[in-house]
């Protein structure tokens, strides 16, 4: 009786049922990987020399030196922190009108198109690339960094804000509109209460991102702790570099915890 049942079973392929396609895609992946890996040229003697330096870096990370470059570090840190705060405030302040303008359900079509394209430009340009241009225009220093981060904040906040507004409860907006409210009253009564908590949460999140980015754009001359870090690595002062990285990690951790706490508190 039991012999009537098959005694082999193979799991049917889940994603690509067609056997030929599957084989084609699998070979394609293998060929790509071989080609890609073969393009890596490694100078092993250079790597070997570097190992000693890598070891020094790890040691520097484990025994960070906060004191000998403390003046530079604190200067960079102050630049980074002030840059982060001012750029987030300015960025969010500009994002709000643009975000409202980019919500399809609130504004006429031309305004929507303009605001959405501002967002698209801001999102598609890397912070570093923006920083390169702004440094060229405004000179070295934290002011260029401030502008870079403000610009990046606009794309981030305005996009999420606009998407949120487009998803708000339409019946509430209609109810308010039915009372004969003006457009400003509509935004104030129907939109603001619904998106305010979210806006605060996003701003805190962006504050955190801006700090992390402020540690990078210094590499291209836009001020902040990144410039200090760049100098430390150029001078092979790995213990100072380790100290800077640890400070960045700690600040990001603190920012992350406090922002999640604040968001909970505000809701």
């Amino acid at each position: 009786m039991s012999t009537a049942y098959p005694d082999t079973w193979h799991r049917p392929p889940q994603i690509i049922p067609n056997r030929r396609w599957r084989i084609a895609i699998q070979t394609g992946i293998v060929i790509y990987l071989i080609l890609a890996i073969s393009t890596i040229e490694v100078n092993w003697s250079r790597v070997y020399e570097g190992l000693e330096r890598g070891q020094r870096f790890v040691m520097g990370f484990l025994q960070p030196d906060f004191t000998s470059r403390w003046k530079d570090i604190s200067q960079g840190l102050i630049e980074s922190l002030t840059m982060t705060l001012t750029s987030t405030v300015v960025g969010v302040a500009i994002s709000v009108p643009i975000g409202i303008g980019a919500a399809r359900n609130l504004v006429p079509r031309p305004v929507y198109m303009i605001c959405r394209s501002i967002i698209a430009v801001s999102r598609s340009l890397q912070e570093i690339i923006v920083a390169i241009f702004l440094v060229a225009m405004f000179g070295f220093g934290p002011f260029a960094g401030f502008l870079t981060l403000s610009f990046a904040t606009i794309g981030f906040i305005a996009k999420l804000l606009a998407d949120d507004i487009e998803e708000i409860d339409a019946t509430q907006a209609e109810a308010i509109r039915a009372t004969g409210a003006s457009w400003l009253q509509l935004v104030d009564y129907a939109v603001k209460p619904q998106i305010m908590p979210r806006l605060i949460g996003l701003s805190l999140y962006r504050l955190d991102i801006n700090f992390r980015e402020s540690a990078v754009i210094g590499i291209v001359g836009a001020g902040g702790i990144g410039a200090t870090l760049n100098t430390a690595i150029d001078r092979y002062e790995y213990d100072s570099a380790g100290a800077i990285l640890l400070i960045v990690i700690v600040i990001v951790m603190v920012a992350e915890y406090s922002s999640s706490y604040l968001r909970k508190f505000l809701q």
Partner: peptide
């Protein structure tokens, strides 16, 4: 917390 550009900066110095 450490951007890939910073990782790259370090790694270029090392290897």
């Amino acid at each position: 917390s450490i951007n890939s550009l910073i990782w790259a900066l370090l790694l270029v110095a090392i290897i």
